[in-house]
Write a protein that binds this DNA or RNA. Sequence first.
DNA 1: TCTGGGGTCCTAGGACCC
DNA 2: TCTGGGGTCCTAGGACCC
Length: 433
Amino acid sequence: MIARGESESRIALVDCNNFFCSCERVFNPALQGKPVVVLSNNDGCIISRSEEAKALGIPMGAPLHGQQEVIRKHGVHVFSSNYTLYGDMSARVMSILREEVPAIEVYSIDEAFLGLPSNFTEENARTLRAKVLQWTGIPVCIGIGTTKLLAKLANRHAKKNREIKGGVFDLVHYPDPDGIMAATPTDGLWGVGKNLALRLKGMGITTALEFKQADPAAIRKSMGVIGERMMRELNGIPCLELEEMPPDKKGVMASRSFGSPVETLQELEEALANHVARAAEKIRRHGLLSTRMEVFLRTNRFRKDQPQYSPGIGITLDRPTNATGELMSTARELLHRIYRPGYRYKKTGVQLAGLVSEEEYQPELLDQPRARIDVDRIVDEINRRLGDPKNPVITRASQGTIQSGKGWRMRSERHSPHYTTDWKQLPVVRSGS
DNA sequence: TCTGGGGTCCTAGGACCC
DNA sequence: TCTGGGGTCCTAGGACCC
């Protein structure tokens, strides 16, 4: 028997500590050891905290106005966010990581998954950590596991026990992984938020270990493919692959809150024009065209005493475009359709969706009638070529739904009884067999 | 009074086509 | 005996993430 972990590939999650605060510190070393926070776009919320700020009890995402007292009392250093700086620092960190490992997925501005070579040790991870710190000034934590979810979990442990672990934790070679999981609440898992944690609790599951050992059918029924996937990942069965090439963007949004509420159509139009211009500029920069636009309005959801109205409307564009003027007049029309006087609006925004690349877009294709494909015939043909017709290699999947309380319902019995939304469950076709 | 912005994925259900 | 059924596309909404 091969010991688990020896033969399997391992994934590391590298996560920058308190990234935005750490960036500010790089350019102002006097902030070292002092409480620091970085604010969201309109200086509304606290979105990054140094360890010292966390120790003062300042919560993540807290509105600034609620923290003024503790800020004044302890001399917390407060910064507006500077995304240009953070993006630049992020690129430096990622380029160092890229040099050290064969495969990397940049997951967010401050995180990356690494595909590790089999001879990569915990000591190598420490060296990597030291190198990033030395060259960029950014401290990171590294967690190692056999799946992305486990790497995340290992990273969480590394962060929580930074003094003992030195910012690195290898769950794969740790003697008691179940002990770690038993000490991890479900909402500490990547992908489990408040609501899913509650749902799990309803099933008597409160820790990562209980989740790992739960009844797969029950999880599938209650949480769908997402739950099933997480459970498999917890058990060391990879379901989430390393994505070295980021997939194409599906949509681009531009929105802002107003400093003080806005009531007139004209003010909304002006703000929206701004957002459309930003969004259009962004898709042009990526060489994309939009085929669909959505516009929305929001009243202040925190003001329970005021009437709420939060409409949104979408439209499929006549033709793919990224021209600001064109998009602007469409946005204006949409705004007019949803605007109602008498409300105090707090936010508006636009989303450009259904993005297609300029290069691949060929207008003449739109005029062609769609080719019809006879799927049954193709399936028969593949089975005929690949094997015994009485024992088909593939069957045609059909569509069905999960009915709450009633289990699985096929829309048709005519095709495969093995319908699944998870392609990994489909039979594998081997060439040459 | 003040309380971010930008994303992804999954599911359900309706319109529509043949 | 009988009321069609399969499939795609679109949209809305929920949940989560950083």
